[in-house]
């Protein structure tokens, strides 16, 4: 199923929350997933891999948040983080750092180099599932990832994220149905 960017962001945010992440971190997960999808990178798959938690080590989301919160120091010197899972999720935060600094930011993800000016993204290859990363100021944009207005997660990934997202919804009960919305069930007036 093709999703709008708004939908993929909401799905990612709710899935992250359903998996137990704090609200503000879940918001970051939603925004990061959307940013990746808007640049043609399967952010939903990256988030799903993170939530599966198959591998130990800091996640791209944790690393990205930590680096973006220290944007000014990242803009002064390279920061390296070893053994990062789902490293693609660092990229939206690298873009935020670039916007704050007003210049390009490069991210080495294992053998792959990503460069962003805050708006656009270039990638030298396919992003691995697990890698050492280094984030540093500078770098030249290569050929740009296409900007896309839709997200196309696989059915498996979408179902997996929806299973987590569902945990944020309260179970249907008769009392909730009757009381919670403040309106009756028919409107034949």
């Amino acid at each position: 199923m093709i999703l709008s960017l708004n939908e993929v962001e909401a799905l990612a945010r709710k899935a992250a929350r359903g998996a137990g992440l704090p609200w503000g971190v879940a918001e970051e997960a939603g925004m990061a997933t959307r940013w990746l999808c808007a640049h043609g990178v399967d952010g939903a798959a990256a988030l799903a891999a993170l939530l599966r938690g198959d591998r130990a080590g800091p996640s791209g989301l944790d690393a990205g948040i930590k680096l973006a919160d220290r944007a000014m120091t990242v803009l002064q010197q390279p920061h390296r983080i070893p053994d990062v899972t789902c490293p693609a999720l660092v990229l939206p935060f690298a873009a935020a750092i670039a916007r704050r600094g007003g210049g390009n930011v490069s991210v080495a993800i294992g053998p792959v180099t990503a460069v962003t000016d805050g708006t656009d993204l270039s990638l030298s290859g396919d992003i691995p599932d697990f890698a050492d990363i280094a984030v540093m100021p500078g770098g030249e944009l290569g050929s740009l990832c296409p900007r896309v207005g839709r997200a196309a997660p696989t059915g498996d990934v979408r179902n997996y994220l929806e299973d987590w997202a569902r945990r944020t919804y309260a179970p249907a009960t008769e009392e909730s149905r009757r009381m919670g919305a403040g309106a009756g069930l028919t409107d034949n007036d």
Binding site: R166, Y169, A170, P171, A172, S176, R177, M179, G180, A181, G182
Partner: peptide, 10 residues
């Protein structure tokens, strides 16, 4: 609510 994701107050 999981019922059509209706927003509610409890």
């Amino acid at each position: 609510s999981e019922e059509k994701l209706e927003p509610r107050l409890g």
